[in-house]
Simulated assay, not measured.
Amino acid sequence: MGKKKKDEKKEKGKKKHHAPVGATDVSGAIIQAARSIRTVLSRNLLSSGLYAGQDGVMLALAEGEGMTAGALAARLGVKAPTMTRTIGRLEAQGFVERRPDNHDGRLTVVDLTKAGRETLGLITQACDLSERQALDGLSEKDVRTLLKLLRTIDGNLRGIEVQSGDKPVADEI
């Protein structure tokens, strides 16, 4: 057996010693992964005419009968002015429309247009492609563990308790 093969065999039997986790290693890794998936998602959304961030608005609107800008902002965790600008861009692109609320004429709701509804399939494809790329090489168990850990981290940071169903749940409403 050659020296190289003996060294490789020796290395396989050794326990790996990892460097201690630094103060910003976890947050840095999460931030970088978020930036990377956002970049990939933006690239995958180009064919639909959308940018990352706009997809979340459209997917939220697809779940119901219109929402106010404030409700969308709260749901997606962004500030109201950011949501107003995003809605304005989506409206200019023909994907959403604003209209008076059916129950309270003082409110304006945002809803998908026909073109917006037709774009939902492209959004789903772009998200699926981005997620498959991000999770390449991870087992189903790895993915479940990752989701549980990320939801716990998010819950810790937002001050909510994560229940056994792995979805953040507010302590009190």
Rank of each mutant, 00 (worst) to 15 (best):
S48R: 02
G64T: 02
Q54Y: 11
M67V: 01
Q54R: 10
R35Q: 10
M67Q: 07
L46F: 13
N44P: 01
A23I: 13
K79S: 09
A92E: 12
Y51P: 00
V78R: 14
D25E: 05
H17W: 05
G49N: 06
N102Y: 12
G28T: 08
P100M: 13
R89S: 15
S27C: 05
I30G: 02
K79C: 06
G49R: 09
A34Y: 11
M83T: 05
T82C: 01
A92S: 07
E63V: 08
S47K: 13
L76K: 03
T84P: 00
L41W: 01
N44H: 13
I87C: 04
P20M: 10
L76W: 04
R85A: 14
M58A: 08
D104T: 03
G49T: 09
I87P: 01
G22L: 13
A92N: 09
E91S: 07
R99G: 05
K16G: 05
R85M: 12
L45W: 03
A73W: 01
S36N: 13
A52R: 08
P81V: 13
G94H: 05
P81M: 14
L46S: 15
K14D: 01
L72D: 02
G77Y: 11
I31W: 06
V26H: 06
A33Y: 04
A69M: 12
D25T: 08
T24W: 04
A74W: 07
T86L: 14
A29Q: 04
A19D: 04
Q54P: 02
V57D: 00
A62W: 04
V57N: 00
V26N: 03
M58I: 10
A80V: 15
G70E: 11
T68P: 01
L46D: 10
G66P: 01
E65P: 00
K15L: 12
R43V: 07
G66W: 06
R43N: 08
D25R: 02
T39R: 15
E97T: 12
P100Q: 15
G28Y: 03
K15E: 08
M83H: 05
S47A: 15
S36A: 14
G22C: 08
R85F: 10
L61V: 11
P20E: 13
E63F: 08
K14I: 03
V96W: 12
M83V: 05
V57Y: 02
G56H: 10
A62N: 12
R85N: 12
G56Y: 11
M58V: 09
T24I: 06
G66N: 07
G53I: 08
A69V: 13
R98C: 10
L76S: 03
R98P: 01
E65T: 09
A69P: 00
D101H: 06
D55S: 07
I31K: 08
A52C: 06
A34M: 10
A23V: 11
T68G: 13
Q54C: 04
A74P: 01
S42Q: 07
A29N: 02
R99H: 06
G56R: 13
G22P: 01
Q93A: 15
G88E: 14
H18C: 04
H17N: 06
A60T: 10
L61H: 04
A23H: 10
H18W: 09
A19V: 06
A69I: 14
V26T: 05
V21D: 00
V21I: 14
